[in-house]
Design a protein around this nucleic acid. Structure first.
Lengths: 114, 114
DNA sequence: GATATACTTCGAAGAAACCAGAAATGTAGT
DNA sequence: ACTACATTTCTGGTTTCTTCGAAGTATATC
């Protein structure tokens, strides 16, 4: 991934409300959550939430699909992976022992997946 | 890590110049780089760079030490690890198969450390 | 068609971020 | 003490972000 997509993604996440939305969707998994449910869960005014969903969506961090009257939002796990990989890039330049603790993060977080 | 420290860190990284500085320092390793060298490497005006270094420093992403007339900046790998762990948190809620690709990032990035 | 529901877009005001030149501070060498 | 160098702080003007009520669009139900 390039800086040009990393900055908008970081920028989208650098906001209390949007970070909460994104983490909620990440927890929720592929089935996603309707905009209204997100608004209720986070106590956000619909218009503010919509603006924030739009920003996250434009950054590629979430996707949406319509289901009847509702619009369902889901986390884009690929984008998340790209962003994390980008932040880790070149972290090992010449000093693997520094990077080792970073490498173990995934293991700690995702023991079920090992 | 909590949202209260994650947002300032993401916010600090959500900027072309600051992201470039941080990645440069991450590549550089523990020996770090003087402010002037960073300015030359990135072609940034000293006053702008100084403001950005201050923001990164305040966010806890970098540290500094004086060496003669120069001030040497280094990446804070612990802060980086905390931030990445936070972003990955709960990513496996109920669906390990989604998280598996995330878990492999570290391995891909840091083969030398395995 | 009319009504209710679910969301989004519009708009405008206040807050915060950004930039880089100029001046100030701190350190080293003579 | 004086000069040179490295970096920070100050300053202002401009731009961008944030917020949320009100109005608009899309879908479903009767």
């Amino acid at each position: 991934m390039e800086v040009k997509s990393a900055v908008p993604r970081l920028s989208a996440l650098a906001h209390d409300g949007r970070l909460a939305v994104f983490r909620l969707l990440v927890q929720r998994g592929p089935e996603g959550l309707a905009a209204g449910e997100i608004a209720r869960a986070l106590g956000s005014p619909p218009s503010s939430l919509s603006a924030n969903l739009n920003i996250l969506s434009h950054a590629g961090l979430i996707a949406s699909r319509r289901d009847g009257r509702s619009i369902i939002y889901t986390a884009n796990y690929d984008a998340m992976r790209e962003l994390l990989a980008f932040l880790m890039e070149d972290c090992c330049g010449g000093a693997p022992e520094i990077c080792a603790p970073l490498a173990s993060i995934a293991g700690q977080r995702c023991e079920a997946a090992q």
